[in-house]
Structures are given as C-alpha cells and as structure tokens.
Design a binder for these strands. Structure first.
Lengths: 150, 150
DNA sequence: ATTGATATTGATAACTGTTATCAATATAGA
DNA sequence: TCTATATTGATAACAGTTATCAATATCAAT
C-alpha cells in the first residue's frame, strides 16, 4: 500500500531530484494538519522542530508536492495561499452558517456527476472543485426569530 | 428603477462618504466590462480617458464597490484579484482553468435544486452559494501534450 | 454663494507573500 | 570514495496592494 512518502520519493526520483531530510520533515509536518493549511502555520511548526530550515525551502517543497499532485494550492482574498492534502482524502463540500459559522460537510454524487458533464461540455478536464453553500442554520434562525420580538 | 450609480451614491451618502468624478469614472469603466476584470485592465482603460487618476484611487474605489455589494472580488493562483459585477446579473458558477486562468461562467438548474435540498435536509435556509470547478482547458491540454514531446 | 469641517486625491513609500540568486553543502550513482 | 549536480539557507528582488501625507475637492450649514 503506497503512502505519501513513497509517492513523493518516486516522484523525485523520476525527475532526478533528491530526497532530503528537509523535504521529509516538511511533508511530515504538512500531513500532521487537516484541511487547508497556510504557509505561516507550517513555518511555525517547522521552526519548533528545526529553526535552521529556511522559508524558501518550504515554498520550494510545497511547489514540488503540488507538482506531484499530493497537494493542492488554493488562493484566498487576503492574497495568501493555502495548501490542501489531496491523497487518501475523500472529497466533500461545505455547508456554512453565515451567522454562527458552523460548517457541515456533505457529498452529493449527482452534483458531482453534473460537474463532470459541465466540464466536458466546455472541453475542460476537471481536476477538482469547490462548492460552498451559505445559509442560516436552524439554531440561528430560531434564535433570530426569538430576538426579533425584543 | 435603480441603477448602479444611484446605489453607489446612496451607499456613499449613508456612510458620509463623497461622490467624486473619479469614483464615477471608475464605476463607469468597470461597468463597460463583462465578467471578471483585473485591476490592470481597468487601469489601462482609465489612463486612456484620464491619465491623472492614481492607482491607489482605483484600489480604494473597488474596495468601496465591494463593500456596497455591487462588486465581488475573487483571488486566483497568480496572486492577482479579479473583480466581478454583482448587480443586475444572473447568478452563475465558475469553471476555471488552473493553467491559463481562463474562466467560463455557467448555470445548472438541477444543481441549484439539489443545493436547496441539501440545505433543507440539514435545516439550513440557503442564502447563497459558490461553486468553482477547476480543470485544464482544451487549449492548455493540447499545448502541454505538444510540449511534452520536446 | 461662502464657509469650514473633513473626505478624497495622487504620488510614492511601505508592506506582504512569494520567487530568484548565489555560494556553500549534501546527495546518490559510479 | 569520488564527482556531477541538486539542494540548501540567507537574503535580495519582485509584484500586487495598502498606508501615509500634504494639497485639494466636496457638501451641509449658513
């Protein structure tokens, strides 16, 4: 059974790149997080373990991990990128309460199917997708109704 | 019938901010584009009409337009933001090429229907949603295949 | 129309996240 | 062990964006 380390090693080997302690440590620490991770968060954790590792190496290694498709990069409004594990993780979407920020994860096979169809119809090869539904959850709705009498 | 200019004026007035020729011109030029517009594109067009307008004013005005919900800001991998008209525009989702960043807008009524169902099933009242499909467009796929023979 | 408080402007310095440069060092195949 | 070369950390450079500031424009009150 393949794991991320073997996949990364293979990838490096095929590209005639090298397996180094720094790359091992960065992958190790990256995998210790779940969901979207920021460079800053990774950098802090890495410094704890070994302050001698430079920030450039972190960026370089993440780029390699993206190249070998173990990791996906996302951009957000504040200009910072986040990195997300892509291997051995089941895809899911998010339902987000705009009032209390509670999030629920869900999957919907039919929606996934249509997404692929849409991509194909436009000549795209789909790599990933992101769907976020924003609304008001039961709790908040009831709370708001109650408060509106005040 | 309200238009963008009136809405923006109202918004500024309520916030005790001022209606200026620069703000008018920037909104005017922004509306002359469709879909996603980059700061750079706007800046070029503005310089044609009035080279004295500074880039800072452009950024400031766009921020105001986002605040009053006439415009939505998006971030992409290359670190640049794009701005999208949000008023008098039918809701749509995005298909984004991760290679050349081309975006295509689409709608899918069935997906919208399922989204509502999912929200209801979790006791949410849906307010809005965002769906982005990431992939490789035809052009980039062909280009990459060709280059891989070199 | 004039006034005056203050919001806005353009120029540009500063800032932030990321990438490129480079000399010293580490890696891995022979 | 040896050697070609990939990698490293420090830091300069870079790009997009935001903050600063003195001069100017706006607009409500007069």
């Amino acid at each position: 059974m393949l794991n991320e380390f073997d996949l990364f090693k293979d990838f490096l080997h095929k590209q005639r790149l090298r397996w180094t302690p720094q790359r091992k440590m960065i992958l190790d620490i990256f995998l210790s997080f779940e969901g979207h991770v920021q460079i800053e968060t990774l950098h802090e954790k890495i410094r704890e373990q070994d302050p001698s590792i430079g920030i450039a190496t972190l960026y370089r290694t993440l780029k390699l991990l993206v190249d070998c498709e173990l990791v996906e990069a996302h951009s957000f409004q504040n200009g910072k990128k986040t990195y997300e594990r892509m291997f051995h993780v089941r895809h899911h979407d998010h339902l987000i309460c705009t009032s209390c920020e509670k999030t629920i994860e869900f999957e919907h096979p039919l929606i996934e199917k249509y997404q692929v169809e849409i991509c194909e119809a436009h000549g795209f090869t789909m790599k990933s997708h992101k769907m976020e539904l924003f609304g008001i959850c039961d709790n908040c709705r009831i709370k708001n109704n109650t408060l509106s009498f005040l």
